[in-house]
């Protein structure tokens, strides 16, 4: 089944200079391998196309079900120079909640925030 990432993982972004780091953490151990296999640095970069202008590097801490995406060129030249309303990129992490993942049907019961009738 296809689900949005928001049902599988939670996120937070942080800023340093012109780089935003976006942390993606699985809610559940069983979800993490699927997240890790599908949310590669390449697909992450493609998802943020145009907004993240530089390279994206991925770091993982498997036993904590965490991935850290370090995105260069994501903050309009840096917090103080950026013309973006959200110059710290605080909301950037929320974008990835809309990434589509394929999850085995058997894990349906472990999804967060599912309402009846939602795919």
């Amino acid at each position: 089944m296809n689900v949005l990432l928001q049902h599988v993982a939670h996120c937070r972004s942080g800023d340093k200079g012109n780089t935003s780091n976006i942390v993606v953490i699985a809610y559940d151990e069983a979800m993490y391998p699927h997240l890790k296999a599908q949310l590669t640095a390449e697909r992450f970069k493609a998802f943020y196309d145009g907004t993240v202008k530089g390279p994206v590097e991925r770091y993982t801490i498997d036993h904590l079900w965490c991935m850290n995406f370090v995105c260069q060129g994501a903050l309009g030249g840096g917090v103080s120079r950026s013309l973006c309303l959200d110059n710290y990129g605080k909301t950037l992490s929320a974008g990835i909640l809309g990434f589509e993942l394929e999850i085995p049907e058997g894990l349906r019961g472990r999804l967060r925030g599912m309402r009846s009738g939602e795919p």
């Binding site: 996120c11 937070r12 942080g14 942390v23 770091y59 904590l64």
Partner: peptide, 16 residues
């Protein structure tokens, strides 16, 4: 665990 994990990697690049 979730609030602590989110903060642990906040503004961190290479976690090692």
């Amino acid at each position: 665990l979730q609030t602590v994990k989110e903060q642990m990697l906040y503004e961190v690049h290479d976690p090692a």
